[in-house]
Structure formats: structure tokens, C-alpha cells
């Protein structure tokens, strides 16, 4: 990796991982390390998925404010899961094979995302603010719908809304881990293969077409990749709200480079550092319950506001 900024970030991430693995280990080292290594791998995958999905989405939508989470990709995924449970019942859903269920839900998400957001992104082309606002409110609608459906599934579940609201980094679902890892890794590879074309997409629609990109197909492909990555991250830890916005903004700020060959790994590394170091600090050092997601939300909200007031939306 010739890029100096990336090298420094990689070193910082390696250090964070090391601290995460060894801090406060007592008793059976082998057992604890194996357990932590698995969770570390999942966290790293979540970080990379969210960062790359956000970067791709921002490039094809032509602005630095929207993220897949803000327009409700993750809410849509949870909605699909909820509707599935509602349709066939919780017991039957639980008996579906893990792999088939994850792949099926992910495929539905990809279809729904392409149908919904391709229309949104094309319809509001050139009118970034309208698109951003419509996207955000769509996100709100998906979250409300999810809460609605979860009420229908279990009217007595008081915290139904809450389940769908925040990421829990300390309670990673072990079940879908391996299949999600495979899907996530494949999608990341796909994003890497697109890096040069994404550079051209970032110039804007007309420039991209003029330089020989099939803009429509790129948009669809990008949305499918975003759906795959979002499904991966959401299946592992839950919805992530402003996390993606936080890390891509930091990546732009720190790396000051337009190439996706730098931006995507950079954002992924930063996301990894924030997640791993944040998790180490919150869980082990401060002993706080499950609030890293909330803190990220708070910081991400500030970044969002700063981007708006500083005209970063252009």
C-alpha cells in the first residue's frame, strides 16, 4: 500500500485490534482469544461494509450527505425480515435454513432498493436537496412501518420500536456470521473492481456517459452492492444510522483524495478504528452498556449538520 495516509490508518487499526484482543483477559487465554477473534472479524466486516456501502451510495447519488442508512436501507432490511415473520409466523421463520433465509432476504432487499432508490436518484437528478429530503423521510417511513409490523407480530412487546432503532455491537448474532461474511466479502470485492468506474461516476451523470459509462447499469449495480453490504452489516449488528456518514466524511477530511482506490479502503479502515477502539473504550474501559451506537449517532448528527451549514452538500 503505497499511500501514506492508508498505511498510518492501517497501523492504527492493527493496534486497536491488538488492544481489543488482549485487554483484560483473565483465565483461559485460548478460549477468550478465539471468542474475541470471531467477534473482531465480525466487527471488521461490519465496518468495511458500512463504509464502502456509504461511499458507493454517495458517489452514485452525487452528494456527501445521504447514506444508505439515512435513506432507510437498513430499516428496509429489518422491515423485510419482520414482514417475513408476519407472513409465515415466527416459528416457521426460525425453522428456515439460515443460509436460505439470509440470501432470500438480501435478494428481496436488493430488488426493493433498486426499484425504490433508482427512481428516487434518477427522478431528482440535479435537485440534490429534494432528493436528500425525500430520502430521509423515506427512511423515517420505513422505520415507522417496521415498528408497525413488529407491533402486529407481537402486540405485547413493549420495546418493539427499540429493537429496530439501534445497533448492538456487543451482541453479535453468531448464526448468520459465516454466510454474511461470504456475501459481504464478495460485495466488497465487487466494489473494489468498480473503483475506477466509480471515480468517473463521481464526476456527474453527463460526464460519466460522455466518458463511456453505462450510467443506468452502474447505478443499478451500485445499488445492488449497497443492498448486499447493508444486509451483511444489519444482519450482524442491527441498524447503524449515521455511522457511515461519520466515516466517509472523516475519510474525505483525512485523505483528501478523489480516487475510490484510496477512499473506500480509507473509509473502511477509519470505520474499523472507530468501531474497535470505541468498543474497547465503551465496553471494557468505561463499562457502559450498549451505547456506542448512540454516541456514533450523536457524532454523525453533528457531522451532518456541519455539512449542511458548511455547504458540504454540494
Amino acid at each position: 500500500m503505497a499511500h501514506r495516509g492508508l498505511a498510518i490508518l492501517a497501523a492504527a487499526l492493527a493496534l486497536s485490534c491488538l488492544v481489543y484482543l488482549v485487554i483484560g483477559v483473565r483465565g483461559n487465554w485460548g478460549f477468550v482469544l478465539a471468542l474475541r477473534a470471531e467477534r473482531l472479524a465480525a466487527l471488521l466486516l461490519v465496518a468495511a461494509s458500512v463504509a464502502v456501502a456509504t461511499q458507493i451510495f454517495q458517489t452514485v447519488s452525487g452528494n456527501r450527505i445521504l447514506t444508505p442508512a439515512i435513506v432507510g436501507f437498513d430499516a428496509l432490511y429489518i422491515l423485510i425480515q419482520s414482514v417475513l415473520v408476519l407472513a409465515i409466523g415466527g416459528l416457521a421463520a426460525a425453522q428456515l435454513p439460515e443460509i436460505g433465509r439470509f440470501l432470500g432476504e438480501t435478494a428481496i432487499l436488493a430488488l426493493a432498493a433498486v426499484a425504490l432508490f433508482a427512481a428516487l436518484l434518477r427522478g431528482a437528478a440535479g435537485d440534490v436537496q429534494r432528493m436528500v429530503l425525500a430520502g430521509i423521510v423515506l427512511g423515517v417511513m420505513f422505520r415507522s412501518l417496521t415498528a408497525f409490523v413488529q407491533r402486529l407480530i407481537d402486540p405485547n412487546e413493549f420495546a418493539a420500536v427499540q429493537i429496530a432503532s439501534f445497533a448492538r455491537f456487543n451482541r453479535i448474532e453468531a448464526g448468520p456470521l459465516w454466510i454474511a461474511m461470504a456475501v459481504g466479502a464478495a460485495a466488497l470485492a465487487g466494489a473494489w473492481a468498480m473503483r475506477h468506474r466509480l471515480d468517473v461516476m463521481a464526476l456527474g451523470r453527463d460526464h460519466a456517459i460522455s466518458l463511456g459509462l453505462d450510467h443506468r447499469r452502474m447505478l443499478m449495480t451500485a445499488l445492488v452492492l449497497v443492498a448486499l453490504l447493508t444486509a451483511t452489516a444489519t444482519a450482524l449488528v442491527g441498524p447503524l444510522a449515521f455511522f457511515g456518514l461519520l466515516v466517509t466524511s472523516l475519510a474525505h477530511l483525512v485523505l483528501r483524495d478523489h480516487r475510490h482506490a484510496v477512499l473506500m479502503p480509507g473509509a473502511a479502515l477509519i470505520a474499523g478504528i472507530v468501531l474497535i477502539a470505541g468498543q474497547t473504550v465503551f465496553e471494557r474501559a468505561l463499562g457502559l452498556a450498549a451505547t456506542l451506537g448512540v454516541v456514533v449517532e450523536f457524532l454523525g448528527g453533528l457531522v451532518f449538520l456541519a455539512l449542511l451549514l458548511g455547504r458540504g452538500w454540494r
Binding site: D199, A202, L203, G204, D206, H207, S210, R256, H258
Partner: peptide, 11 residues
Amino acid sequence: ILRQDSTVGSR
């Protein structure tokens, strides 16, 4: 093609 309104998306 060179368009009339040629804003550039990237920095």
C-alpha cells in the same frame, strides 16, 4: 461532448 452546465462532482 462538452455540456453547457459542466459542474464537476469531485474535488
